[in-house]
Design a protein around this nucleic acid. Sequence first.
DNA 1: AACTTTCCCAACCGCAATCCC
DNA 2: GGGGATTGCGGTTGGGAAAGT
Length: 299
Amino acid sequence: MSRASMLDENGLKKGPWTPEEDRILVDYIEKHGHGSWRALPKLAGLNRCGKSCRLRWTNYLRPDIKRGNFSNEEEQIIITLHASLGNKWSIIASHLPGRTDNEIKNFWNTHLKKKLLQMGIDPVTHVPMPSDHHMNTFSNLHHLLSLSTAPWDSSLRLHTQAHLLQNVLQILNSPSSLAISNNLFNTQQITNLTYNHPIGSFFQTFPSNIQPLQEPLSCDDYATTAPALGLENDCNRAESFYDMSQCPNSLPDLIPASPECSKIPTAIENNWGDIMDDETSNSYWKHAINQTPPPWSVS
DNA sequence: AACTTTCCCAACCGCAATCCC
DNA sequence: GGGGATTGCGGTTGGGAAAGT
């Protein structure tokens, strides 16, 4: 399962680690800590470079590493974090105790990427693929619905809910949509699809022939509909909903590209600011504030 | 059974960030 | 503040295992 052992230009061993080398490394670190990785191999009596020792320890020998298959919950966390962070494997790993960045990266490349593609979701942008756009968006609802009620970290759930809301808007608020004119998608179908989800009852409150909202939802309106969406009761979010529906040619991407259309739901901002760690929110805010297309929306 | 193709993942490589003198 | 040393990160590779023919 690994490459044949050989020596590098300095005569240091490369390739797979033997059980004996593992034992030496573990014994040394347990007694002395790793200290300087560069100095470690010599001190421990290993014919390896420090970098190789560090990798072996952090990715394989560390005692707190969790082995075995990824759970559904871990899978959902990876997908959602990847949607907002991109290939920031080390940050994603920091949300999954016992998992290494390398392991998550491998799992993403070998499993999750394919899974998303099969669902018609671009694994880079996390938006439905261009072909059969609306059909994919529609089928994507199943996925987002399950994620949006998942019992894990509330910040991640909020993010998924935002995706869900925008996906639904993509379907309903699309003047150019043949799908809608052919009645392929209507609120009744979405209500049926979302029968067991709070958002289903939300759409029962909408007229069957969806038009862009003519005016912002009032705070009272939102107080009624937000709980139905499973979202916090927050007027700012009502404004966001209105703003998104007002975008010309509205087929809003998950993160709208044009400044006029790119208002980030304030309620989500606030929650993320409170909940997400610095690195995560920095990345999010940098793009939100500059209104530049974030990596997760670039195709 | 033999051969080929695909899958999977440990390990490597190179670059960027951070540390330290 | 500058520059070399060290560490961390993400992309890629290589080869054994599994699946397919």
